[in-house]
Design a protein around this nucleic acid. Sequence first.
DNA 1: CCGGTCACCTGAGTGC
DNA 2: TGCACTCAGGTGACCG
Length: 279
Amino acid sequence: MPELPEVETITRELRGAVLGRKIKHFQVYLPKIVRPGPRRLARLMTGAVFEDVTRRGKFIIMRLRASGTGQVLYLVVHLKMTGQFLWLDGNPRDRPRHVHAAFVFEGGGRLLYRDMRQFGYLHGMTQEEFTAWEKEQCLGPDPLDIDSEEFAARLRAGKGRIKPLLLNQKLISGLGNIYVDEALFAAGIHPLSRAEDISRARALKLHREISRILKEAIALRGSTTSNYLGLTGRGGEYQNRHRVYRKQGQACPACGCLIERTVVGGRGTHFCPGCQGRG
DNA sequence: CCGGTCACCTGAGTGC
DNA sequence: TGCACTCAGGTGACCG
């Protein structure tokens, strides 16, 4: 489900809920979603204290301090399509469907990891493993961390259709299907445009629109179209601001043409044939 | 190198 | 009701 604004929202909520807190028990109900194995991970996590929770692209990076050894420990989380974190106070006896892992905290409260489609994962790493992981990922910068000049330069280095390029996390990290469609609409760029055909001015505008849209979406705690939820079960509001995403057949708010849906790079793609020309 | 397809899963929505 | 089919916010492997 989540793209940059949703992951950012969840990360902020996680910080408020778990920073400084100590894990009493860590339970895994679906072994395939964790690394290393459930027993080893549980042993690492038990007694550990959350020191920081940050976002890198669509990844959630949890930094903990292990009990006993005092070693730094990372838990790298990717929510993929339907991953969620849910905070529960008290001790409810039955757990919701699709809960695959649980952090139980000293002093009360628990954090559940839930994922209907089971694509997401929680990977525990040592400091060394985390450093190697970062290098291997080779994630591009967050679009909110670079200026329009750098964005245009990175785009110029890319080849091929603009949409798959923006979805490529190695070029820019954090964008997904919703926000790419929305940003291309706002910038007046057809999703099949080739990166090499996009003018410098248009690339600068694209970055400004990406930044604006992401900031607005973060302020509204992301988009809830089917099942994205924050920690407390509250959804986002940005879906009410979508202009083209899943709006096929409706009138374009800018020109009145009907929004179309096609497939680009295997992803459903929504655009206005009137506003979004090529090049 | 590129683009297309599938696989990983479960569920919601739609049409017959 | 039931069944068949499409689609879903992500990503990686494989194939021509």
